[in-house]
Amino acid sequence: MPLALRTMYMAQVLALLKLITQDPANIRLLIEGTAIVTDRVCVPWLFGQMDDVNLTRLAGESITFATA
């Protein structure tokens, strides 16, 4: 999915991410997608996702990608 998001217009990416948020089972895709958006406004949300042990590494990688 990250590669597909990089080829889309930002409006399309945001619409897809909004659709993904409707199903909590897609949290990993949402975290990856948030990194692609590289919107620093999302960083606090990503830090919050690090509270879940299963998502810590992915959220940390996404923060690095979004802020680099």
Rank of each mutant, 00 (worst) to 15 (best):
M1I: 11
M1D: 12
P2D: 15
P2N: 13
L3I: 09
L3R: 08
L3T: 07
L3W: 01
L3M: 11
A4D: 09
A4K: 06
A4R: 09
A4E: 12
L5S: 06
L5E: 08
R6C: 10
T7W: 11
T7I: 10
T7P: 00
Y9L: 14
A11L: 10
Q12A: 14
Q12E: 15
Q12Y: 06
L14M: 12
A15T: 04
A15I: 01
A15M: 12
L16G: 02
L16W: 06
L17H: 02
K18N: 12
K18Q: 12
L19G: 09
I20T: 03
I20A: 04
T21R: 13
T21Q: 14
T21G: 10
Q22L: 11
Q22P: 00
Q22K: 10
P24D: 15
P24I: 12
P24A: 15
A25F: 00
A25G: 06
N26W: 03
N26T: 02
I27V: 14
R28Q: 12
R28W: 02
L29N: 04
L29T: 00
L29H: 02
L29S: 10
L30D: 01
E32F: 03
E32P: 00
G33A: 07
T34F: 04
A35I: 01
A35P: 02
A35C: 01
I36P: 00
T38V: 03
T38Q: 13
C42R: 00
W45L: 14
W45K: 05
L46N: 04
L46C: 04
L46K: 00
L46T: 02
F47E: 14
G48A: 15
G48S: 10
D51G: 10
D52C: 04
L55P: 03
L55N: 10
T56Y: 11
T56M: 15
T56Q: 15
T56W: 10
L58K: 03
L58S: 08
A59S: 11
A59N: 05
A59D: 07
G60Q: 11
E61G: 06
E61I: 05
E61S: 06
I63D: 04
I63P: 00
T64K: 08
T64Q: 11
F65L: 05
A66Y: 05
A66P: 01
A66E: 05
T67H: 03
T67S: 08
T67P: 01
A68S: 09
A68V: 03
